[in-house]
Design a protein around this nucleic acid. Structure first.
Length: 563
RNA sequence: GCGCCAAUAGCUCAGUUGGAUAGAGCAACGGCCUUCUAAGCCGUGUGCCCGGGGUUCGAAUCCCUGUUGGCGCGCCA
């Protein structure tokens, strides 16, 4: 148990006993014990913890909040606790001021747990599938995928730090309509390169990458003459060859890009495998058996409207081909039923939010608790160049790729940048800022704190007797206390980030921690004549360095020793 | 038309399960390096928390409503 958890459970228990004691003493009468909430006051003058219990009771106790608060405070037993004193303030807040020792406990906690400081086990034993990015494999990844990658990966990491057994998953859309379009586009470029007359499909992929694929294909095959045999094939056979060829290359490219981005997937799940393994059929049969499917105009429909949605959705088209929705149902049943994940979470772009309700409806129809499926909706990224939105079209191949982005600003900057704001806020990616002004980026601010600490410690190896126990009670400066307080917050920050599915909280914490260290650094010298104080401060910055390292690990960002 | 997301300082944004005097970065101005990394620190001030109702002891936060912006509403994925 980390120190904050110990404190909150202890204080809550003492408050509950005090309320009980006050009631027994006849100070007030209440029918039921309300939930006791502890909060951390914004103003330091109000102590480390505060409860509003006295303001929740007046209705049933028929007494003024202050009177209730006084009665509770009279009965609070602080024996054997870290509570220094209890007071009443404002409209009836009960404030707890702690003994300075609690901060030492936080520092010792860090030193004891090391690389594991911040890990908790509240979700131990539960499996968690996190699907993110899942970019269309028909072309290179774009900047929206970059945001999804950073958010998803750090979300996965926070989940792992709270005890979940996490699987990072990429759904490869290697089946269906867009693959057909991909094949049409490849074939058209091939015929063009071969000098055959051809009209490029109107809704085809116009990017250069398509032409490059086929140019390379021809070269690898030994030139145009050697490729003449493909002209004799049927168009469908030929497209199948090209799709196989280009898909493999694209997939390898995406895997390489994601690896470079610090994202390592456990599973690359093929949509096509759902067809090959009969899971599409099986899912359809299941829905049919539940009576959720009907036929209309030659197509098979899912009764989405039975689940509060506006209209029904097609599962199998009149031409016999399953829709993307059908595949998605089979896929999520695979996650939740076949593979039995306790939770399945998807990170989707805002342009997909309309699909949440119907997918959950399908899960419900299939007899699966829809709450086991959660969607994190990420608002779309807007590229800003020269202060104006930069329009790009993936179809025309003008998108800025993930690899271009990484060339420009590097993995560390990109990962932090995309986790500066919560997923559900709109995000403007300023190209000029990323290109020219990396000093403004908070990632350097955080890393600089780590490098500074390392530098100090490097120079002090001989000055401190590390076998002795440091006297942390010497750390009384406000800057020292602020730093220690922040250090104690990491476990709860991770738990909150996971619970709210908001990885930006980790980034904000990292910035706050770095700021607390820089402030401390400027206010307090570590290398001082007083050997005991020096020892205590070395211990403090050693802990701060460890926490910075752990938080950078979660963010997937390097913790440099020098800058 | 219906649905989802957003609106807080000049700009970009924090703001914890509703709490006490709404914060930070950038920008502007002024200060801090003979001593552990100045990619840093300290100081100076600015708010119709989009408007209007409501709930509450208490609302930037919750509910209703309006406005503005983004996205979606296909036998596309």
């Amino acid at each position: 148990m980390y120190i904050r958890e110990q404190l909150t459970t202890d204080i809550k228990a003492r408050v509950a006993r005090a309320v009980e004691a006050a009631r027994e003493a006849g100070d007030f009468d209440i029918a039921a014990m309300p939930e006791i909430m502890l909060e951390i006051p914004r103003e330091k003058q109000f102590g480390e913890y505060s409860t509003n219990i006295a303001m929740q009771l007046p209705k049933q106790a028929h007494k003024a909040p202050k009177v209730i608060a006084e009665a509770i405070v009279r009965h609070v037993d602080t024996e054997g606790s870290l509570i220094d004193n209890v007071s009443i303030a404002g409209p009836g807040f009960i404030n707890f001021k702690l003994k300075a020792e609690w901060l030492s406990a936080a520092v010792n906690d860090v030193l004891e747990k090391g690389d594991d400081y911040g890990r908790t086990d509240g979700n131990a034993g539960k499996t968690y599938n996190l699907e993110f990015v899942s970019a269309n494999p028909t072309g290179p990844m774009h900047i929206g995928n970059a945001r999804g990658g950073a958010i998803g990966d750090i979300l996965a990491e926070t989940a792992a730090w709270t005890g979940y057994d996490v699987t990072r998953e990429f759904y490869v859309n290697d089946a269906g309509n867009q693959i057909a379009k991909f094949g049409d586009s490849l074939d058209a470029r091939f015929l063009e390169l071969m000098g055959e007359p051809v009209t490029f499909p109107e809704d085809g992929y116009q990017g250069e990458d398509i032409t490059n694929h086929m140019a390379n294909f021809i070269e690898n095959a030994g030139g145009k003459d050697a490729c003449a045999k493909y002209l004799d094939m049927s168009a469908d056979e030929r497209k199948a060859v090209f799709v196989d060829y280009a898909l493999e290359i694209n997939l390898a490219g995406m895997q390489a890009d994601m690896a470079r981005y610090g994202v390592h997937y456990d599973v690359w799940f093929s949509e096509q495998s759902l067809y090959d393994d009969g899971e599409i059929e099986h899912a359809l049969d299941l829905l049919k058996a539940k009576g959720a499917v009907y036929e209309k105009e030659g197509a098979l429909w899912f009764k989405t409207t039975d689940y509060g949605c506006e209209k029904d959705d097609v599962l199998i088209r009149a031409n016999g081909l399953p829709t993307y929705f059908m595949g998605d149902i089979a896929y999520h049943l695979n996650k939740l039923v076949t593979r039995k994940f306790d939770r399945a979470v998807n990170v989707w772009g805002a342009d997909h939010h309309g699909h949440i309700a119907r997918l959950k409806a399908a899960m419900q129809a299939a007899g699966v608790d829809p709450d086991r499926l959660e969607i994190v909706i990420m608002q779309l990224v807007r590229l800003i160049k020269n202060g104006e939105p930069y329009r790009m079209s993936k179809r025309k191949g003008k998108a800025l790729g993930l690899s271009d982005l990484l060339d420009m600003c590097g993995t560390d900057v990109a990962r932090v940048f995309f986790n500066l704001r919560s997923p559900d806020s709109h995000f403007d990616f300023d190209l000029d800022l990323a290109l020219t002004n990396s000093n403004d980026n908070p990632v350097f601010y955080i890393q600089y704190a780590h490098a500074r600490i390392t530098s100090i410690l490097r120079q002090m190896t001989d000055d401190v007797n590390t076998t002795a126990t440091p006297d942390l009670s010497l750390l009384t400066a406000p800057e020292e206390r602020d730093l220690m307080t922040l250090i104690s917050d990491l476990p709860e920050t991770i738990i909150t980030a996971e619970a709210k599915m908001d990885p930006s909280r980790i980034t904000h914490y990292a910035i706050d921690l770095a700021s607390a260290f820089h402030t401390f650094y400027n206010a307090c010298r570590v290398r001082v004549d007083d050997a005991d104080l020096m020892h205590a401060r070395v211990t403090l910055i050693t802990a701060a360095k460890q926490v910075l390292k752990n938080v950078l690990t979660i963010l997937g960002v390097d913790a440099p020793d020098r800058m």
